[in-house]
């Protein structure tokens, strides 16, 4: 459902991703591993369409058989791509309910939406007041990630990229988050970006990809994740040279 072809991405003058070719299948769960600064978030942002990222002319992103390379982020989102941010931004005077109302337009009735997101908040064990307060202002790390999940669930996209949904979150929150992610999995493709194995106790990926220095260096199954856990990323450095 998602194909990255020769994806080369620059931020300013610096090339962050080099010639990445990947295919993501429908309904599968992918885990992308990589050390800090390896280009994981850049990959996520490039798929979501961050306008500050420049793609090389040879690069292409195909989503459901159509190139989305030239589409603005809102159009990509409307086609079913959702990015759960690593560090969700605080927005003064904008709350989740209002944001979703505007994003969904006439697709959902406001009262039904209100009910829906309040039930998600309950599932995730956060105060429903957070849905009506300035987004992420004064929220804890875990609350911020949960508010991302609520947005994802309400928008019901086809592809969700979770950029480090597991960082800044305690064990109990991580369990709830994982449970929530699996509960709302139906018909969706997940890309879990992470740099450690914690979350994979709860969610088993179909595929594991390793990214280093802006390149995919290894692909495999769950066992690959276990190997990284035990031996760290150094093994890939050696295999490369």
């Amino acid at each position: 459902m998602l194909k990255l072809k020769n994806l080369t991405v620059k931020i300013g003058k610096k090339t962050i991703l080099h010639n990445i070719n990947l295919t993501f299948q429908k309904n599968k769960i992918y885990a992308i591993f990589g050390p800090n600064g390896s280009g994981k978030s850049t990959l996520a942002h490039a798929i979501a369409g961050n306008p500050l990222h420049t793609l090389s002319p040879q690069s292409n992103i195909i989503f459901n058989n159509k190139s989305i390379k030239k589409l603005s982020p809102d159009k990509r989102a409307q086609q079913g791509i959702f990015l759960s941010w690593q560090a969700p931004l605080s927005l003064s005077g904008v709350n989740v309910f209002q944001l979703l109302q505007i994003a969904l337009g006439s697709k959902k009735n406001p009262l039904a939406l209100k009910k829906e997101i309040e039930s998600y908040a309950k599932d995730l064990n956060i105060n429903t007041e957070l849905l009506y307060r300035s987004l992420n202002e004064g929220a804890s790390g875990g609350e911020k990630k949960k508010l991302e999940l609520i947005q994802a669930a309400a928008l019901n996209p086809k592809l969700i990229i979770f950029d480090e949904i597991d960082t800044g979150v305690d064990v109990d929150a991580l369990k709830l988050i994982s449970k929530f992610i699996l509960k709302n999995k139906k018909g969706k493709t997940y890309i879990l970006i992470t740099h450690y194995n914690r979350m994979l106790k709860y969610i088993t990926p179909d595929n594991v990809l390793v990214i280093m220095n802006g390149k995919i260096v290894k692909q495999g199954g769950k066992a690959l994740a276990d190997k990284i856990e035990k031996q760290g990323y150094d093994i890939f450095k050696k295999s490369k040279s």
């Binding site: 942002h45 979501a48 369409g49 961050n50 306008p51 500050l52 603005s72 982020p73 809102d74 990509r76 989102a77 409307q78 959702f82 990015l83 941010w85 969700p88 931004l89 927005l91 904008v94 944001l99 979703l100 505007i102 994003a103 969904l104 947005q151 928008l155």
Partner: peptide, 13 residues
């Protein structure tokens, strides 16, 4: 902020 704009547009707005 460009980042805030991207955040909201990445929600389909």
């Amino acid at each position: 902020s460009d980042e805030k704009l991207f955040y909201l547009t990445s929600r389909g707005i």
